[in-house]
Amino acid sequence: MLVSCSADNTTIKIKGSDTEVNLAVQLAESFHSTNPGLFVSISGGGSGLGIASLMNGTADLANSSRSINDLELKLFHQRGINLDSFIFAQDAIAFVVSSSLTIDSITPAELAAILKGSLKNWSSLTGKDLPVNIYGRQSNSGTHDFVKKKLGIDFSPHAKEMNGNAQILEALKSDNSGIGYVGAGYVIHGGSKGIKVLTVYETKNSKAVSPLDAAMIAAGKYYFQRPLFQYYKTGSFEKVKPILDFEKSTSGQKIIRDAGYYPVN
């Protein structure tokens, strides 16, 4: 019985990025109606979790909102595992504040100063004497990692580490001096009452771009945009193939678009 238990070919285990989990669940729901014999179990927890689970053999498909890093790649090599990846959508990170703050757009440099904790007050940006409250993600989140790398900073130790995108939005709705970052898909679906999305411009002369602007994302013009990856072991391609095929199908692409992401064409 124990031996038969270790070989489970009827369930595809997908783990990883919280950004992608909602999308993955919706894909799995529709997938089930076309492939009733094949189960898909999905867990979130962050991109690092997905990649680690893939390495540990507790996942078949790792959702990741960042590309795999050198340290992880080294560990896969040590274990003699070959990897393949698949980009199934584009995501844009939205920086969100309370709608009562008098600020509409921001530069990456200003964001870096705020998020690393050197700019502790909103007065220089908005003229209002309010303390900055940072709502971020846990260190295992791909979003956290992406923002950190893109800005080249370490986050302030007083940044609150929230468990998910939605918790950040919830907190920002009731915090008139908070700032947080979430996937653009969530702003569209989580409701925008009491909050606003900042547009980002790189230099004084360049145009400020909104993460909700599909055309600009498609052109790759938004500063904080990234591809969403799915990693799998080369050896288990046959097992995960049905779900990858479904993601590429017309109905799969429609689900991706409806969920607030930008399909890769």
């Binding site: 927890g45 680690a52 390495m55 540990n56 560990l75 295992n140 580490e161």
Partner: peptide, 21 residues
């Protein structure tokens, strides 16, 4: 202040770590 206990740290991070690191 927000805090993070030992139990919560294990619960949050155990899933994300590659085994034997």
């Amino acid at each position: 202040d927000s805090i993070r206990t030992i139990t919560a740290t294990v619960a949050i991070e155990m899933g994300e770590v590659p085994y034997r690191t």
